[in-house]
Design a protein around this nucleic acid. Structure first.
Length: 211
DNA sequence: TCTTCGATTGTCT
DNA sequence: GACAATCGAAGAA
């Protein structure tokens, strides 16, 4: 990683949501709290695109819960689901157009002791391999909803990470949205880097001293 | 007010 | 592979 972390600018998010979802892979999600810095590398995302997208929470319009999706790109949209889980999204596109990228999985980089504590009893590989596991490991909850991801002094932000080869990116249908019907249910709007591919590469770069 | 159900996870069989 | 946990948002009544 570069010695001085750079924050992804707002322009990064002010683009079509599918592009943002793809380009977020390999970037570094940071949560600073209790004087500690927790860093992870984003490995899996999903795109949700507008009121027409029947899998999108904004499909019924601008209800109180989804207001952040309509706001300025580059902010966090964090919501509560299944009575116990927080899920983290990055808002994209123009103000007034509800679109966001769900961050589904990441690789732990820094703050490992704290993450292990937050994911007590779970092995390293499963600390951040799901959207609610990730928020649990990073101690992210609703108090961070609408947080600006583009500010260097923001407790929750996304820094530039690595440019991973495009051919590493897998595309598949989004998870847990069977209710949406076609074509939404089958659109390949889930993007991910295979975990093993990333860890092999990490092991190699660490050996080379390139980090 | 009542009812349904979810962008999930962990445990148990 | 099945299923319970757990509760707020949203729609129906």
């Amino acid at each position: 990683m570069t010695s001085v972390p750079r924050i992804l600018p707002r322009a990064f998010y002010d683009r079509p949501v599918l592009e943002v979802a793809r380009d977020l892979l390999g970037q570094v999600l940071v949560h600073e709290f209790n004087g500690q810095v927790l860093r992870t590398c984003i490995l899996e995302t999903e795109a949700y695109d507008g009121e027409d997208d029947q899998a999108c929470h904004a499909r019924r319009g601008k209800t109180p819960r989804v207001v952040p999706m309509y706001e300025e790109a580059g902010h966090a949209f964090i919501y509560f689901t299944y009575g116990m889980h927080w899920l983290l999204n990055a808002v994209t596109g123009a103000v007034g157009y509800p679109a966001a990228v769900l961050i589904r999985a990441a690789y732990p980089l820094q703050g490992l002791t704290q993450m292990a504590q937050n994911r007590a009893g779970q092995p390293f590989a499963h600390w951040c391999d799901g959207p609610a596991k990730l928020t649990r490991a990073l101690a992210i909850d609703g108090s961070l909803n609408t947080c600006d991801l583009c500010q260097a002094n923001s407790p929750l932000r996304i820094e530039t990470g690595w440019e991973l080869p495009q051919e590493w990116v897998r595309r598949s249908p989004r998870i847990g949205i069977d209710y949406a019907g076609e074509p939404w249910r089958s659109l390949p709007w889930r993007l991910d880097i295979p975990y093993a591919r990333f860890t092999d590469w990490m092991a190699h770069t660490e050996q080379q001293g390139v980090s």
